[in-house]
Design a protein around this nucleic acid. Structure first.
Lengths: 220, 220
DNA sequence: TTTTAAAATGAATGATTGTTCATTTAATTT
DNA sequence: AAATTAAATGAACAATCATTCATTTTAAAA
């Protein structure tokens, strides 16, 4: 079910994760090449070259060129799933948690915009089984944002709007940074992008109680 | 510079745009196939088949498979550039013009979501000369939105925010419908999507004068 | 009708490239 | 050291397809 028949993970001796390490080497090489030149435009030979190995060896660690794509996309999504909760955790106030989530999401996208676009460009070409895995991960990340928003609503800081709706808007916004920088070039820096959008969101969502509550943090 | 060496447009007789018509046939066939199955996954043979012709003939009307892609993308963008101003024109009040622009944009995207994604997926693989053409068209469409926003600001209805910034957010939002429906499936209908987002935008942007002014239209 | 030109065909071409596998190299074990 | 297993190589294979072009069909002109 997982990936490759010929290689068993964790053979012999102690820790024995070297197999996964070598696989990661191919995946990162692939990620870079796919991001810069596109999936179809990248040959397996090039990936091997960049990873410092021969083309044939790749097939010991991966079934397909396609699996390499799946792993590349998943690596990106996993970094989302790791970074965002980390940022949220550091805050207690619902509004600050929301802000942190939004900020973290945009920042992690801004950190590797091209890799982010991989998911947009190439999820479609994967078989549905793989597509579902990706979709699943996205939904999980969305959930984090949704929870923040819901908390703000129950605290009476945000007015009662559809949570999923706003959640998706936040996600789109974050991805928007990657989409934008590729298509329109830079109009402004990430910081401005974050601040501007956060301002827009809060203004649109605050109740008067929320607005009041938030003032405290601005002064500090 | 334009497209094909072997065919001159507007030969002989009267109107004589039949050449362009036959070319369009290939382009629409290509658009559909590229949208559904992807560019690389579509063969020239398939395009010819769908257009009811032979593969070889395509090359009388188009230099490349790539040019077919360019034309497919441009056809979509041109429909944007046509529909949105049409909707804006019917309104006089700045706020209504803005609303109309946003609504029209989302609707035209919702009308052919897959085609919209073509630009996202495949602009990157086109040679820079073609890419620039596409970018140019996008900027033109953006300009329409920007003008609406600027008008709202000078009328004192919107607070003074960066116009380009908001403009891009509107565009992203519209595209977001296509991106979403592909990735997350339908959470809600287009109408809800439009209303919800319009509400969010207006709440975030209104001055008190603007809010006041807008109430009139809501009652009517 | 005869001639000439345009439109259309589709089999053949040529180049590309993912994948395999017989073979070599390196590491482990006995 | 010898034997055995794992890791790695890279040339060869097979399939795919964009593109071409000699040929046929259709239309227009003389």
């Amino acid at each position: 079910m997982s990936s490759s028949q010929t290689v068993k993970r964790g053979t012999s001796s102690a820790g024995g994760n070297s197999v996964l390490h070598r696989r990661r080497k191919f995946v990162t090489a692939a990620t870079e090449l796919f991001s810069n030149n596109g999936f179809h435009e990248t040959t397996v030979k090039e990936i091997a070259e960049k990873a410092g190995a021969s083309p044939g060896l790749i097939y010991n660690y991966v079934r397909d060129k396609e699996e390499l794509l799946l792993l590349a996309i998943m690596e990106v999504l996993e970094s989302y799933k790791k970074e965002i909760p980390r940022a949220v955790r550091d805050n207690n106030d619902p509004i600050l948690r929301f802000s942190a989530a939004l900020t973290a999401y945009i920042k992690v996208v801004a950190d590797k915009p091209k890799a982010t676009l991989l998911a947009y460009r190439y999820t479609a070409i994967l078989p549905s089984e793989m597509r579902n895995k990706i979709k699943e991960m996205e939904v999980e990340t969305n959930q984090i944002i949704s929870d923040c928003i819901a908390a703000c609503i129950t605290a009476g800081y945000f007015r009662k709007i559809n949570v999923e709706f706003i959640s998706y808007r936040v996600v789109l916004l974050a991805h928007g940074w990657a989409l934008k920088s590729w298509r329109l070039g830079k109009l402004h820096g990430v910081e401005e992008y974050i601040d501007g959008n956060l301002d827009l969101f809060l203004t649109a969502l605050f109740t008067s109680k929320g607005r009041h509550h938030y003032r405290k943090f601005c002064k500090a």
